[in-house]
Simulated scan of single mutants.
Amino acid sequence: MMLAVMFAFTLPGYLDSIHGMYSFEQPELYQKKSNCKPIPASLHLCHDIEYTEMRLPNLLGHETMNEVLQQAASWIPLVQKQCNPDTKKFLCSLFAPVCLDELDEPIQPCRSLCENVKIGCAPVMAAFGYPWPEMLECGRFPLDNDLCIPPAGVDNLAPVTKEVPKVCDACKEKIEDDNEIVDSFCKNDFALKIKVKEISYMNGDTKIVPENKSKTIYKLNGVTERDLRKTALWLKDGLQCVCDEMNDIDAAYFVMGQKLDGNLVITSLKRWQKGQREFKRISRSIRKLQC
């Protein structure tokens, strides 16, 4: 996610994004007359691309703009991972296909564009437990021709001065001594060692559902252990920042945070590496601590 993992980047939460997709071989996609619609500023996945109007229904079978906005948000973490320079172009060719009045049929991504993105991004998605979706298998797209969207050529690649994604505050690397660890622990309402069951995105935030069986509670204030089984953890504005610290859904993480407006909001997230000196020190300091 993350991705948030995530895509996190789920990343995914991407299973919802492919729910209801049409096969590109099915005629149903073209039975309804397509309409050109302005790409809204709220479609952050396809913000600031080279064209301003998109076709509805799109190539994923989404018929309303609300459906496009909801499903596209889950893919932002994959773009943030920068696994391929054409990831955004490929996804936007599906979610927000270019709309030209003089063409009756939509312009699809070329197969080579799909293959290039898949080579770079499928391993990133697999690290979070998600295979490349069947509905995006590259064989469904046309071989390169004048009427499909190709990958960027070597001459057209963006310069190296690309924008560096913002790192989520909770995921920034911090070197803390024992006193700082104790101070941070006492300021927060919860401290947990968790494994991640699921990552998804809601209203721009990253929602993290821990596995109950693998959870270790170091501190819990204002919420019972029973409530915790039904409560998710939240990384605020997770769609607007990256959390490379959380890059493996099978790993364990040490998270601390606060209860805000009834939600458990993460303020610090570290990947737990068994045997590492820092985490031995954290465990030792916390177990004998009285705030």
Rank of each mutant, 00 (worst) to 15 (best):
W234I: 14
L11V: 11
E102L: 08
D189V: 04
E173Q: 14
E173N: 13
C148I: 05
G120F: 08
C148H: 08
M135K: 12
C99H: 03
N35Q: 14
K207E: 11
M1W: 00
R226P: 00
S200H: 12
T216Q: 08
M246C: 09
G262I: 04
I39C: 09
S214M: 02
E63L: 04
C148Q: 06
G275P: 06
G20R: 07
L69Y: 08
C241D: 04
L94V: 00
L264E: 07
L11D: 13
Y14R: 11
C186I: 02
P57C: 09
I175P: 02
K33P: 06
L43M: 06
K81A: 15
Q80M: 14
A251T: 02
P150H: 10
G153R: 10
L15N: 12
N188T: 09
F190S: 05
A4P: 11
E225L: 00
K219D: 04
E137N: 12
L269D: 05
C99G: 08
P106G: 12
L29H: 05
D237Q: 13
K174C: 05
F90Q: 03
K37I: 15
F128S: 09
L220N: 04
D205I: 03
K230C: 07
D261Q: 08
K89Y: 07
L192V: 07
C291P: 13
E176S: 12
V5H: 10
P133D: 04
L289R: 02
L78D: 05
N84A: 06
Q70N: 13
G61H: 05
M21R: 09
T224F: 01
C110H: 02
D155S: 14
K259P: 06
G139W: 00
W272V: 01
C92T: 03
E25S: 15
I175H: 13
D86P: 08
V164N: 12
R140Q: 15
R140F: 12
E211C: 07
Q82M: 12
M2H: 10
K197F: 06
P85Q: 10
V167Y: 01
K172D: 08
